[in-house]
Structures are given as C-alpha cells and as structure tokens.
Design a protein around this nucleic acid. Sequence first.
DNA 1: TATGAATGAGCGTTCATTCAT
DNA 2: CATGAATGAACGCTCATTCAT
Lengths: 206, 206, 206, 206
Amino acid sequence: MLKARDQKEKNLRKQLILDSAEVVLERRGLHKLSISAVAKEAKLAQGTLYLYFSKKEDIIAQLTIRSRQKLLALFHQAIEKTEDPLEQLRNILQANFKFYNKYRLYYELVNFYKVNAEENEPPELKQTSRNISALVASVLDRAKTQGLIRPSINVAEFTYIAWAMCNGMVQMVDLSGPQITSELNKPTEDFYTTYVNFVIEGIRAH
Amino acid sequence: MLKARDQKEKNLRKQLILDSAEVVLERRGLHKLSISAVAKEAKLAQGTLYLYFSKKEDIIAQLTIRSRQKLLALFHQAIEKTEDPLEQLRNILQANFKFYNKYRLYYELVNFYKVNAEENEPPELKQTSRNISALVASVLDRAKTQGLIRPSINVAEFTYIAWAMCNGMVQMVDLSGPQITSELNKPTEDFYTTYVNFVIEGIRAH
Amino acid sequence: MLKARDQKEKNLRKQLILDSAEVVLERRGLHKLSISAVAKEAKLAQGTLYLYFSKKEDIIAQLTIRSRQKLLALFHQAIEKTEDPLEQLRNILQANFKFYNKYRLYYELVNFYKVNAEENEPPELKQTSRNISALVASVLDRAKTQGLIRPSINVAEFTYIAWAMCNGMVQMVDLSGPQITSELNKPTEDFYTTYVNFVIEGIRAH
Amino acid sequence: MLKARDQKEKNLRKQLILDSAEVVLERRGLHKLSISAVAKEAKLAQGTLYLYFSKKEDIIAQLTIRSRQKLLALFHQAIEKTEDPLEQLRNILQANFKFYNKYRLYYELVNFYKVNAEENEPPELKQTSRNISALVASVLDRAKTQGLIRPSINVAEFTYIAWAMCNGMVQMVDLSGPQITSELNKPTEDFYTTYVNFVIEGIRAH
DNA sequence: TATGAATGAGCGTTCATTCAT
DNA sequence: CATGAATGAACGCTCATTCAT
C-alpha cells in the first residue's frame, strides 16, 4: 500500500506550499501573492507548484479554506468560554475582529472569488463556509430554543446576515480605520464593540 | 468666450471615456478595467485617454465619484417619499440594494483605494463619501431629535456602522446570492429586507 | 514688401519657442525637453511648434546654436580683459567652465547630434562651431606670431584638441564632481584650473 | 555539485544577452538599446531577459563593466610593451583610442549613469573605474618616483584630468571626425597622436 | 496662421503558465 | 517527481507627429 504513503507525502508538499503562500499573504497581501513569490518562499521551483495545484486560483481557494478553518477554530474557542448562547454569539462576533487583527490581510480573501476568479467557489471552499455557518447557526438555535432571542428570527437567514455585516465591518475598519478613530475619538475596537452590542441587543428577546 | 465651449467639449469627452469605463466595469468587473479595454470601448487610442485623465487611478476615482453621486441621488429620492425619519432610513437602506441591482459591479469600487492605489482617496472622492454620510447622519439626527431612536445611539458612529453593514450585505448577496436564494427559499430582495428590518428595529426607541 | 515684415514676425515666434525650450532645458535637462513641455512653456499649441520647426531635432539644433553663441560671447569677453594672447587663451578656457556653471544642463547639447539624431549636424550649427573655433584660432595665431607658444603647434589642430579636452573636463566634473572634490580635497574650480594651467604651460614657448 | 554547472549555464545566458546588447549598442547606439531590440537580437522573449537582469539599467551597467574591463585589458597590454613609465602612459593614451576604434559606440556608456539613471553607479561599476584609475595612477607614480614627470604634478588629480581629456578627444573624433580629417588633412589617428604628444610633453620633467 | 485633439508605436516591466530535461 | 528556463500577452504610460478645423 504505497499509495497511501504517497498520498500523504503529496499532501505534505501541498501543505508546505500553502504554508508558504500564507507567509507571502501575511507579509505582502493578496495582490502580491505571485506564484514566483510563493515558490521562492517554499524553496521550490515554480513549475513544481503546478504539480500540486493546477491554477493559482486553486492555491488561493485552499488558502481561503485554511483561513476559514482558523476562523472556525477561533469561533469554537469563543463558544467554550461560556454556556450562554447569546454570550457565545457575542464572543463569536468579537472573535471575528480578533481574527482580523491577527491575520490582517486575510480578509482580502473574502471577496477573491467573485472579484478575480473566472469560476465560482469550488465545493470544498463552500463546505468550510458552511461549517462556520453551521456553528453559528447552532449557537443561534440554542439561543432560540432557550428563548433568548426573538422567535421571529430565522436562524439560517440571520447567520448569513451576521456574517455579511461582520465582513462589512472588518472591511470598513481596514479601509477607514484611522478616519473612524479620529472622527469618533475612539479606537476601532470600541467601534466594533458598538456594532456587536447592536447585533446582540437587536436579536435579544424582551 | 470660446473657452467655455471648449471646456464643455472636453468635459463631454471625459464623460464619454467614463461612460466607456462604466461599460467595461459593468461587463467585466473592476479587475478587467484596463486602459486598453476602456480605450477600445470608447473607440479611442489608448494615448487619448491620457489627455483627459492623468492616471488610470483618476478614471477609477471619477467612476467612484459618479457611483457615489448616483447613490446619493437615490438616497435623496428615498428620503423624499416620507417625512418619518425612520422610514427615510429604511428607504435609504433599501435604496442601497436597488443601487446594487442596477449597477451590479459598482460595489467593487468601494475598496479600490485601500487595496490597489498607492495614494489615499483624492479629496473630491472623500467629499462625495462625506456627502452621503452627512445625509444619512442628518436623517438619524432628526430621528433622534424626535425621539424615534434610542438616545444611546451615537449618530456618527452608527452612520459608519450602517454603511459598513450595507456594504457587507451587498457583497454577500453578490458573492452568494444564488446559494442564499436556494437555501432560504426566498429572493435576495427579501433576504436584504430582513436585514433592513433588523437595523430599523434595532435602533427604534421603545 | 510685406514679406520682410512677415519674415520678421515668423522669426519672433521662432525665438519665443526657443526661449521656452531654453527654459525647459535649464529647468529639467535635455531628456525632459518634450515638445509638449516646450509648447506649454511658450503658451502655444503643440501643433504650432511644427509651423516653425519641422522636427524636434530642429529645435535642439537651434538651441545648440544659441548655446554656442552664448559661449562665443563669453569668449569675446574673456579676450577683452587682456592683450596677452596666452592670457586670453587662459581666460577662454576658464570661461568655458563658467559657462558650464551658469548653464549647467547645456553641456548635454554637445553630444546630442551624434547620440540621438538620425542626421548629422545641420550646416548652420556647424557654422557656429566654426565661429568659436575661429576665435580661438585667432588668439592662438597671435600667440604664435608673437612667439608665445611653441612653433611646432598647429593652430587649427590644437583648437580642436583644446575644445575636445574642455568638453571632456566639463563632463567629468558634471559626472563625478562630488567624487573629485572629496578625493582631491579641493573644489572642482581648482581641479579645472589645474587643467587650464596644464594646457597653457603645455603650449608656452620656452 | 550540479549547482556550479547551473551557475555556469546561467552565466552563459547572461553573456549571450550581453553579447546581444553589445551588438545592438554597436549597431544602433545606446539610445536605441531597448529591451525589445536586445531580446530580438538574442532571439529570446522580452520577459526572459528579466530572468537574468532585474532592470534595463542592470544590462547597461554590465555592458559598461565589460567595456571598462576591455579597456583595462588594453591598458595592461599597453604597459607591458615597455618599461619606461612615460612610454607606458603614452601607450595607454593610444590604447584608449584603439578601444574607441574597435568598439565605436561604447564611449556613450561613459555618461549613462549621470544622464539617464535614477541611481548612482552600482558599486561593481565604480570598482571597474577605480581599477582603471589605479592602473593609470600607478604608472604615473612610477614616473614620478623616477623623476620622469614634473614633481608638481598631483598624480590623483592628473589621472582624472587625463581621463577627462581622453573622453573629450574620443567624443570629438566621433562627433567631428570627417570634418577634422578634411580640415587638418590628416587621419584622426594622427590628430589623436598630436593630443597624446601634447599630454606626454606637458608632464615630462625638463 | 494657429489650434489641440488624436494618434499609435513604442517603452520597461510583470507574471501565470508550459514544457523539455 | 521536480526543475526552472522560457514564454508571450498584458499592463500602464509617454510622446513626436499629424491633421481637421
């Protein structure tokens, strides 16, 4: 059964490439993520990358998956801190911002597929999104079951909405952080917290 | 006074180029908006474009200004339909989505300067943003004065938050519209409306 | 005889254009001397320039003529200061450096025709060179007649040589001035003076 | 140790490109040395050149280094022909002209960095210049030690001056060779020799 | 005579992808 | 499996020159 071993090796190589791509992404941003930069970082030949990924887009797709997995892990941590579903949600929303702070340039991945790719998101990528959604939805479900949020709230729908709003907030901070800080006279963390409070209070049952 | 006429002609040409740039933007998206594509669309030589715009960025800046002006106009219309500030806000949020539906790819312009440009947004561009913010803020101000929204709401801050959330929503619809439609079994308009309701109810005074 | 008047007007325009070209040359150097820059400086349309000069090269040729005329004037001044032909020559050589100091970027014109132009120097341009040569030669002639310089010196030949060496010196100073200053620990003026002394002593009769 | 072989191959390619650049330089001059012309000459794609040189300036720098090395080699040969330092200097000056005759358009490289480049000469390039200067200076030093040249002569300074004058002479011949030939009724070689004699006699001790 | 808009070839440079080894 | 040299199209931009008005 050499096959399995080969598969494993192949997978290791893939991970090495993705690790390198991540380094480049974190250091220079998505628009400087060129194949040659990744290859150099991985100490591989450019051509070698094409043995593991058929297109540059594939690498970015996998990178996106990774970033979602990281986010998912943060969300899991966020949930573990408390039993209260509503507080869990709050922690999740805050974790989203912490994620941005930790991996500044990752948020660029959010829009990549629509903006730059010829095709739609590959299924594997969609799945990771769904995993995140499922987690958030489960928290919301519990909150709903416990009567903590308004009954009128459609969990699936609100999950999308929350996700969308969070992305918008992160981009806003990234785009206009300094302006916001100076105009509102508060750090972006507080600005984001206002948003979080708005969301939590907006769904809380009376 | 030939000068005035010349100015007008020159301006017309500028508009022609921007029209062409818009066509390219709407058809292919911002990342395919190359000078050569715009020139071809305008049936002009590439060099000619540089008689009217000193850099590609200038074209994009003007395009952004145009789009913000369109949006501002839609917001004004939205306000005129009712006297109730809260309903005005609702209309504004809805107008944002109508804008997206009408000019699909324009939302890509939102992030351009942060992501691609070397410099910050030019002043003219900032001004158009400020005009929009000011309009929204004025509606919120009135709502607050009339006791329609919670006193705890900081108008300037909430204007940013609303703007951020709206952008996030539009991007979400653009990115995952079909998926949302099929999963929630409702058109994206309704999905967006849920978001609008959430915002309005979230700030409404009890 | 309107013709003469027209000619005069035409000539005035030509001078205006050349004045402007000179301004651009002095300000930005030869490689930034574009037709559009000259036209802007002259407050004329670009096309207008082509009514007076058939090619950009023509403008540069005329500019070169002007610079030689300026140099010739400086040489005349240099001669007037003394009766001694050898001192006159010294003054001429020094005047060459003063010319460089005054019109820094003009020295770029020296090589233009060989380096950039398709054709050889036009006759008019050659004539101005000859005028300078003639002046220097006349000084050398008198020096020779008075027995101040070695009889073996061929005046025409040495005129060329002196001219060549001077150009080389100016270019060297322009190219490596700071390096020379620091390495020799003396200002470039003194460096140049050493050269002048070398030339004068080299031809002086014993 | 495949690496060494690869390095060698890479170096060969570099040399091929430089050879092609040289062909273009010799045929059309420095101002027509475009990347596309060099690529065409080398029968390579334009992009390929950038695998070996990061900027056009790099190619020109290497070309300059090559030309200086050639010149240095000629100078070394010139020195070996005799033991007399003054005759060595004479040979060096003559070698400078032979170099020009052999590589007509190379002298254009002398001014490149000052006139066209954004940056200063790269260190490697400066070193080659220094090597040449050092050689000439060593010859002059020996001449001075042996009392063959005037004690008043500052070796470092005169090295610069000689270098400058030589450049001026070559440019003069290149610019006005035919005119000189016809006017003086002698070949440019003889014209140049007169210059050389002038320099040698000018520094010779009495 | 004068305009200045328009041209279009040219520039240096980047980069995803291919393919002979 | 791995290489990395090579490609070639595309990019944004400049500018001398032309020409309809």
